[in-house]
Protein backbone atom coordinates (compact mmCIF):
# COMPACT_ATOMS: atom_id res chain seq x y z
CA UNK A 1 0.00 0.00 0.00
CA UNK A 2 3.02 2.24 -0.18
CA UNK A 3 4.15 3.91 -3.33
CA UNK A 4 0.72 4.90 -4.47
CA UNK A 5 1.86 7.59 -6.85
CA UNK A 6 -0.59 6.71 -9.55
CA UNK A 7 -3.59 7.56 -7.46
CA UNK A 8 -4.24 11.02 -8.76
CA UNK A 9 -2.82 10.89 -12.23
CA UNK A 10 -1.89 14.55 -11.82
CA UNK A 11 1.51 16.14 -11.77
CA UNK A 12 3.44 14.35 -9.09
CA UNK A 13 3.28 16.52 -6.01
CA UNK A 14 6.47 17.30 -4.15
CA UNK A 15 5.63 15.34 -1.07
CA UNK A 16 5.60 12.22 -3.15
CA UNK A 17 8.74 12.69 -5.19
CA UNK A 18 11.03 11.23 -2.60
CA UNK A 19 9.06 8.00 -2.74
CA UNK A 20 10.63 7.65 -6.14
CA UNK A 21 14.07 8.41 -4.75
CA UNK A 22 16.02 5.43 -3.62
CA UNK A 23 16.78 5.41 0.05
CA UNK A 24 20.15 4.87 1.60
CA UNK A 25 20.06 1.94 3.98
CA UNK A 26 22.14 -0.32 6.17
CA UNK A 27 25.44 0.70 7.79
CA UNK A 28 25.80 3.64 5.40
CA UNK A 29 22.58 5.12 6.73
CA UNK A 30 23.67 4.50 10.31
CA UNK A 31 26.89 6.42 9.69
CA UNK A 32 25.14 9.19 7.79
CA UNK A 33 22.63 9.59 10.60
CA UNK A 34 25.38 9.75 13.19
CA UNK A 35 27.33 12.22 11.09
CA UNK A 36 24.46 14.61 10.52
CA UNK A 37 23.55 14.53 14.23
CA UNK A 38 27.16 15.23 15.09
CA UNK A 39 27.19 18.05 12.56
CA UNK A 40 24.15 19.59 14.13
CA UNK A 41 25.62 19.53 17.63
CA UNK A 42 28.99 20.84 16.54
CA UNK A 43 27.24 23.53 14.53
CA UNK A 44 25.23 24.60 17.56
CA UNK A 45 28.32 24.58 19.71
CA UNK A 46 30.23 26.91 17.46
CA UNK A 47 27.38 29.24 16.63
CA UNK A 48 26.11 29.56 20.18
CA UNK A 49 28.47 31.42 22.52
CA UNK A 50 26.34 30.40 25.49
CA UNK A 51 27.45 26.81 24.87
CA UNK A 52 30.96 27.59 23.70
CA UNK A 53 32.11 29.92 26.44
CA UNK A 54 31.46 27.87 29.59
CA UNK A 55 33.14 24.83 28.02
CA UNK A 56 36.30 26.87 27.55
CA UNK A 57 36.11 29.20 30.52
CA UNK A 58 35.40 26.64 33.23
CA UNK A 59 38.59 24.65 32.75
CA UNK A 60 40.60 27.82 32.31
CA UNK A 61 39.18 29.11 35.53
CA UNK A 62 40.10 25.99 37.48
CA UNK A 63 43.52 25.93 35.86
CA UNK A 64 44.24 29.52 36.84
CA UNK A 65 42.87 29.18 40.35
CA UNK A 66 44.66 25.92 41.15
CA UNK A 67 47.94 26.48 39.37
CA UNK A 68 48.12 30.07 40.56
CA UNK A 69 46.85 29.80 44.09
CA UNK A 70 48.27 26.50 45.24
CA UNK A 71 51.76 26.45 43.74
CA UNK A 72 53.32 26.65 47.21
CA UNK A 73 52.16 23.07 47.69
CA UNK A 74 54.94 21.82 45.44
CA UNK A 75 57.38 22.58 48.23
CA UNK A 76 55.80 20.01 50.50
CA UNK A 77 58.38 17.31 51.18
CA UNK A 78 57.72 14.33 48.90
CA UNK A 79 56.16 16.33 46.06
CA UNK A 80 58.23 14.79 43.32
CA UNK A 81 56.60 15.84 40.03
CA UNK A 82 59.48 17.04 37.85
CA UNK A 83 57.77 19.64 35.63
CA UNK A 84 56.46 22.10 38.18
CA UNK A 85 53.05 22.81 39.69
CA UNK A 86 51.52 24.52 36.66
CA UNK A 87 52.12 21.45 34.52
CA UNK A 88 50.95 19.22 37.36
CA UNK A 89 47.63 21.07 37.49
CA UNK A 90 47.37 21.19 33.72
CA UNK A 91 47.35 17.40 33.70
CA UNK A 92 44.29 17.44 35.93
CA UNK A 93 42.48 20.28 34.19
CA UNK A 94 42.89 18.60 30.83
CA UNK A 95 41.06 15.52 32.08
CA UNK A 96 38.48 17.68 33.80
CA UNK A 97 37.79 19.72 30.66
CA UNK A 98 37.37 16.56 28.60
CA UNK A 99 35.00 15.11 31.17
CA UNK A 100 32.89 18.23 31.41
CA UNK A 101 32.66 18.47 27.65
CA UNK A 102 31.07 15.03 27.82
CA UNK A 103 28.65 16.07 30.52
CA UNK A 104 27.56 19.02 28.39
CA UNK A 105 26.67 16.52 25.69
CA UNK A 106 24.35 14.91 28.22
CA UNK A 107 22.73 18.31 28.72
CA UNK A 108 22.13 18.61 24.97
CA UNK A 109 20.50 15.20 24.87
CA UNK A 110 18.25 16.05 27.78
CA UNK A 111 17.27 19.33 26.15
CA UNK A 112 16.49 17.56 22.89
CA UNK A 113 14.17 15.18 24.69
CA UNK A 114 12.54 18.04 26.51
CA UNK A 115 11.85 19.94 23.30
CA UNK A 116 10.62 16.86 21.44
CA UNK A 117 13.48 17.10 18.96
CA UNK A 118 14.58 13.58 19.84
CA UNK A 119 11.20 12.21 18.87
CA UNK A 120 11.73 13.59 15.43
CA UNK A 121 15.09 11.85 15.24
CA UNK A 122 13.73 8.59 16.60
CA UNK A 123 10.99 8.60 14.00
CA UNK A 124 13.30 9.49 11.16
CA UNK A 125 16.21 7.15 11.56
CA UNK A 126 15.91 3.39 11.73
CA UNK A 127 19.23 3.28 13.60
CA UNK A 128 18.48 4.98 16.86
CA UNK A 129 21.81 4.06 18.38
CA UNK A 130 23.32 6.41 15.83
CA UNK A 131 22.17 9.05 18.31
CA UNK A 132 24.80 7.90 20.82
CA UNK A 133 27.51 7.97 18.17
CA UNK A 134 26.36 11.33 16.85
CA UNK A 135 26.41 13.04 20.22
CA UNK A 136 29.72 11.37 21.11
CA UNK A 137 31.48 12.49 17.97
CA UNK A 138 30.22 16.03 18.48
CA UNK A 139 31.45 15.97 22.07
CA UNK A 140 34.85 14.76 20.93
CA UNK A 141 35.17 17.51 18.37
CA UNK A 142 34.37 19.98 21.10
CA UNK A 143 36.85 18.35 23.45
CA UNK A 144 39.64 18.57 20.87
CA UNK A 145 38.95 22.28 20.43
CA UNK A 146 38.86 22.94 24.15
CA UNK A 147 41.99 20.87 24.82
CA UNK A 148 43.86 22.68 22.06
CA UNK A 149 42.87 26.06 23.49
CA UNK A 150 43.92 24.94 26.95
CA UNK A 151 47.31 23.94 25.60
CA UNK A 152 47.77 27.34 24.03
CA UNK A 153 46.91 29.08 27.30
CA UNK A 154 49.01 26.64 29.33
CA UNK A 155 52.09 27.09 27.18
CA UNK A 156 51.62 30.85 27.17
CA UNK A 157 51.52 30.83 30.96
CA UNK A 158 54.89 29.16 31.18
CA UNK A 159 53.89 25.54 31.49
CA UNK A 160 56.85 23.20 31.21
CA UNK A 161 55.99 20.36 28.82
CA UNK A 162 58.61 17.77 28.01
CA UNK A 163 56.43 15.45 25.92
CA UNK A 164 57.48 14.20 22.53
CA UNK A 165 55.05 14.21 19.58
CA UNK A 166 53.90 10.68 20.40
CA UNK A 167 53.17 11.71 23.99
CA UNK A 168 51.12 14.64 22.76
CA UNK A 169 49.07 12.37 20.53
CA UNK A 170 48.53 10.07 23.49
CA UNK A 171 47.42 13.02 25.65
CA UNK A 172 44.81 14.02 23.12
CA UNK A 173 43.66 10.42 22.79
CA UNK A 174 43.44 10.14 26.55
CA UNK A 175 41.37 13.31 26.75
CA UNK A 176 39.06 11.95 24.07
CA UNK A 177 38.71 8.66 25.92
CA UNK A 178 37.79 10.56 29.09
CA UNK A 179 35.36 12.62 27.06
CA UNK A 180 33.75 9.48 25.68
CA UNK A 181 33.32 8.01 29.17
CA UNK A 182 31.61 11.18 30.30
CA UNK A 183 29.32 11.23 27.25
CA UNK A 184 28.29 7.64 27.82
CA UNK A 185 27.69 8.23 31.52
CA UNK A 186 25.77 11.48 31.04
CA UNK A 187 23.76 10.21 28.08
CA UNK A 188 22.66 7.22 30.15
CA UNK A 189 21.20 9.67 32.66
CA UNK A 190 19.79 11.95 29.96
CA UNK A 191 18.07 9.08 28.14
CA UNK A 192 16.46 7.94 31.37
CA UNK A 193 15.27 11.27 32.74
CA UNK A 194 14.78 13.18 29.49
CA UNK A 195 14.73 16.53 31.24
CA UNK A 196 17.38 19.16 31.77
CA UNK A 197 16.44 19.10 35.43
CA UNK A 198 18.50 15.92 35.62
CA UNK A 199 21.55 18.12 34.92
CA UNK A 200 22.86 17.90 38.50
CA UNK A 201 22.60 14.11 38.29
CA UNK A 202 25.04 14.17 35.38
CA UNK A 203 27.28 16.89 36.73
CA UNK A 204 27.60 16.11 40.42
CA UNK A 205 28.78 12.47 40.22
CA UNK A 206 31.28 13.45 37.53
CA UNK A 207 32.47 16.35 39.62
CA UNK A 208 32.88 14.08 42.64
CA UNK A 209 34.66 11.38 40.68
CA UNK A 210 37.10 13.97 39.36
CA UNK A 211 37.78 15.52 42.73
CA UNK A 212 38.27 12.15 44.36
CA UNK A 213 41.55 11.80 42.50
CA UNK A 214 44.91 13.30 43.52
CA UNK A 215 43.86 16.79 42.45
CA UNK A 216 46.29 19.00 44.37
CA UNK A 217 49.16 16.72 45.32
CA UNK A 218 50.51 13.38 44.10
CA UNK A 219 48.71 10.30 45.34
CA UNK A 220 51.44 9.46 47.86
CA UNK A 221 50.85 12.75 49.67
CA UNK A 222 47.13 12.24 50.09
CA UNK A 223 45.87 11.22 53.50
CA UNK A 224 42.65 10.05 55.07
CA UNK A 225 39.56 8.82 53.28
CA UNK A 226 40.31 10.61 50.02
CA UNK A 227 43.48 8.54 49.68
CA UNK A 228 41.45 5.35 50.09
CA UNK A 229 38.83 6.41 47.54
CA UNK A 230 41.38 7.76 45.07
CA UNK A 231 43.21 4.45 45.31
CA UNK A 232 40.25 2.62 43.76
CA UNK A 233 38.98 5.45 41.54
CA UNK A 234 39.83 4.59 37.92
CA UNK A 235 40.05 8.28 37.10
CA UNK A 236 43.13 8.50 39.35
CA UNK A 237 45.08 6.55 36.75
CA UNK A 238 43.77 8.75 33.96
CA UNK A 239 44.81 11.93 35.77
CA UNK A 240 48.22 10.45 36.62
CA UNK A 241 48.79 9.23 33.07
CA UNK A 242 47.97 12.70 31.78
CA UNK A 243 50.56 14.22 34.13
CA UNK A 244 53.19 11.64 33.25
CA UNK A 245 52.68 12.22 29.53
CA UNK A 246 53.17 15.96 30.02
CA UNK A 247 56.48 15.12 31.62
CA UNK A 248 57.39 12.88 28.71
CA UNK A 249 56.87 9.64 30.64
CA UNK A 250 54.56 6.81 29.77
CA UNK A 251 54.04 5.38 33.27
CA UNK A 252 50.43 4.41 33.96
CA UNK A 253 49.46 5.19 30.36
CA UNK A 254 48.64 1.63 29.34
CA UNK A 255 46.72 1.08 32.56
CA UNK A 256 44.79 4.32 32.03
CA UNK A 257 43.74 3.37 28.49
CA UNK A 258 42.87 -0.14 29.65
CA UNK A 259 40.67 1.22 32.42
CA UNK A 260 38.99 3.63 29.98
CA UNK A 261 38.18 0.69 27.74
CA UNK A 262 36.70 -1.42 30.52
CA UNK A 263 34.73 1.41 32.10
CA UNK A 264 33.75 2.56 28.61
CA UNK A 265 32.22 -0.81 27.78
CA UNK A 266 30.22 -0.80 30.98
CA UNK A 267 29.05 2.77 30.37
CA UNK A 268 28.18 1.93 26.77
CA UNK A 269 25.79 -0.67 28.12
CA UNK A 270 24.44 1.96 30.51
CA UNK A 271 23.89 4.44 27.71
CA UNK A 272 22.36 1.93 25.31
CA UNK A 273 19.97 0.59 27.94
CA UNK A 274 19.06 4.22 28.65
CA UNK A 275 18.22 4.70 24.99
CA UNK A 276 16.02 1.60 25.07
CA UNK A 277 14.40 3.03 28.17
CA UNK A 278 13.69 6.26 26.30
CA UNK A 279 12.19 4.30 23.42
CA UNK A 280 9.85 2.52 25.79
CA UNK A 281 8.69 5.83 27.19
CA UNK A 282 7.94 7.39 23.87
CA UNK A 283 10.84 9.83 23.88
Amino acid sequence: MNGVDDRTGQVRPVGRTSAGIGRVSGPARFLQSARILAWRNVHNFFTNPALLLPAILFPLFFFTAFAGGLSRVQHVPGFNYPNGYTTFQFGFVLVQAAAFGGVFAGFSIARDFESGFSRRVMLATPHRSSMILGYSVAAMVRAVVVVTLLFVVGLASGMNVSSGPADLVLIVLLAMAMNMLAVLFASGIAFRFRTIQAGPLMQTPMFMALFLTPVYVPYELLSGWVKTVAGVNPLTKVVEASRYLLAGMTDEVAIAFGLCLVVGLVLFGWSLSGLRNAERSGG
Binding site: I21, R23, V24, R29
Partner: peptide
Protein backbone atom coordinates in the same frame (compact mmCIF):
# COMPACT_ATOMS: atom_id res chain seq x y z
CA UNK B 1 19.58 23.11 7.91
CA UNK B 2 16.62 21.30 9.39
CA UNK B 3 15.88 19.91 5.95
CA UNK B 4 19.46 18.77 5.59
CA UNK B 5 19.26 16.98 8.92
CA UNK B 6 15.90 15.40 8.24
CA UNK B 7 16.70 14.24 4.70
CA UNK B 8 19.92 12.66 5.88
CA UNK B 9 18.27 10.90 8.80
CA UNK B 10 15.60 9.66 6.43
CA UNK B 11 18.23 8.21 4.14
CA UNK B 12 17.61 10.48 1.17
CA UNK B 13 20.63 10.19 -1.15
Amino acid sequence: EHMRLQTTLQGVP
